[in-house]
């Protein structure tokens, strides 16, 4: 139960940062997807059930606070959670570079997913712009994970210490 409290708190903090504050630092089109980093972190650190709950509800929260069709990010994040969990059990990705690489790839795939759904919905008027934009955004998200991952690890450790066993 306590892990779920952490999940709720984590999602709330991340969405507040995403919606209200990170835009001051990075232009809106390039801002890092911190919720995605949280999901990849869950794929590496959490067990399957709490992890997928986090991915799903994190996705729903992002869907609510963005212009995406409801459920898009819930789906993408669930897939990301499974993929990052599998990658962690198959390869040794639990290093700063490995984690940043996984986040980069996950952000890129998320971008492809979003652009494809938008492309199906109507003309994007993006031309070749979508590719460098997606690459830049993914790179920024990957680099941000280098700072966010240790922060999440520390928060998780502090939370466990505070509330005791899960």
């Amino acid at each position: 139960m306590r892990v779920f409290t952490f999940i709720v708190l984590g999602c709330l903090v991340v969405v507040i940062v995403q919606v209200a504050s990170i835009g001051f630092v990075v232009p809106a089109a390039y801002k890092p997807d911190i919720m995605l980093i949280l999901v990849v972190w869950a794929g590496i650190r959490l067990e399957a059930v709490p992890g997928i709950v986090l991915a799903f509800f994190g996705g729903i929260v992002v869907d609510i606070f963005s212009g995406s069709p409801t459920g898009l990010f819930a789906l993408v994040y669930c897939l990301t959670f499974v993929a990052s969990g599998s990658a962690n059990s198959t390869f040794d990705i639990d290093t700063p570079v490995g984690r940043a690489l996984v986040v980069f790839v996950a952000a890129l795939l998320t971008g492809v997913f979003v652009v494809l759904t938008r492309w199906f919905a109507g003309p994007l008027g993006a031309g070749t712009y979508a590719v460098p934009a997606a690459l830049a955004k993914s790179l920024i998200t990957g680099l941000t994970s280098l700072a966010v991952f240790p922060l999440l690890d520390r928060s998780w450790a502090g939370y466990e210490k505070l509330v005791g066993e899960r």
């Binding site: 919606v19 809106a28 963005s66």
Partner: peptide, 8 residues
């Protein structure tokens, strides 16, 4: 606030 992910 603004879009949470920036794709929209």
């Amino acid at each position: 606030g603004e879009d949470a992910v920036g794709w929209y």
